[in-house]
């Protein structure tokens, strides 16, 4: 009988401390549900697919093949990379895919649960947490297969390899924070969901996914200031044992990502009741 719920029109921004406490409480309350939902989606996906987790590799492999062919044929000229080009493209595409999936995850999670989101009251943070759990799971699977693949392609990772999962995790968190920030608007207007893949395409070419960072010029600046660059570079370096790029940009991006994730969480919490009435009325 200790539970008391009070609903008023007042904005939760009126008492930010209370809102932060509420967020933390609901996130911790939502673990069980998040875990159940993640488990549900993972087992369902696995059960209904013949190739299962191989799908995580089909796209990067296809991409790698395309770029190797483009490179060989001389259609595009790509500056020499420190590690063999196939490894460069394969790891880059893999990390990039994780980042894009992370951006899409919050919106997807909400869309999937829309039918009961508008009817039942439950800690809605669970949807986001469950999205994160699913990505961590796929991260582990990918990592387990990536390492032998990279060695097979003739690269020998060094001790940095143990740090690689951490870089990948930061990538997932960074992507999710962006996805979470845009999710309130994305729930109202489906334009947002459509624009993500488009932007992802565009961003891929200004991130060292298939191209190396240009040595100088305007594009070099664009690459340098692109927040996705340190994520991809650091992940790749740690995975393959290549020279580690400057650590500071990566640290900055990681810090900002975690901060944004928190702000996104607050925004999401604030926005959902308003969105639910627009979605279900």
């Amino acid at each position: 009988m200790s539970d008391v719920a009070i609903y008023t029109p007042d904005s939760a921004m009126g008492s930010p401390a209370k809102m932060v406490r509420g967020l933390l409480r609901d996130v911790s309350r939502s673990w069980h549900l998040a875990w159940r939902l993640a488990k549900r989606d993972i087992s369902a996906q696995y059960r209904q697919s013949f190739l299962g987790y191989l799908w995580a590799f089909i796209m990067p492999i296809a991409n790698t093949v395309v770029w190797i062919m483009l490179n060989r044929s001389g259609v595009v000229r790509i500056a020499d990379t420190a590690i063999p080009y196939p490894v460069y493209v394969f790891t880059g595409t893999m990390v990039w895919q994780m980042l894009v999936e992370a951006v899409q995850s919050p919106l997807q999670q909400v869309a999937m649960s829309r039918s009961f989101l508008t009817k039942l009251n439950f800690p809605r943070e669970a949807l986001i947490v469950s999205g994160l759990l699913k990505q961590v799971f796929s991260l582990i699977v990918k990592f387990v297969i990536l390492v032998p693949a990279v060695i097979l392609l003739g690269v020998s990772p060094d001790w940095h390899l143990v740090l690689a999962p951490f870089a990948l995790l930061v990538t997932v968190l960074a992507g999710s924070s962006v996805g979470l920030l845009i999710s309130p608007i994305g729930m109202l207007y489906n334009d947002v969901g459509r624009v993500i893949p488009l932007l992802a395409q565009f961003f891929m070419y200004i991130t060292p996914v298939v191209f190396a960072v240009p040595g100088s010029g305007f594009m070099a600046q664009v690459f340098r200031w692109n927040p996705a660059t340190p994520l991809v570079l650091t992940s790749r370096a740690w995975l393959t044992g290549a020279d580690t790029p400057a650590f500071v940009p990566f640290l900055v991006v990681a810090t900002v990502a975690i901060l944004l994730l928190f702000i996104g969480g607050l925004l999401y919490r604030l926005a959902l009741p308003i969105l639910i009435e627009r979605l279900s009325s």
Partner: peptide
């Protein structure tokens, strides 16, 4: 608790 009131209190 699915929508916020515009006026009043629960």
């Amino acid at each position: 608790g699915l929508m916020k009131p515009d006026k009043g209190r629960i």
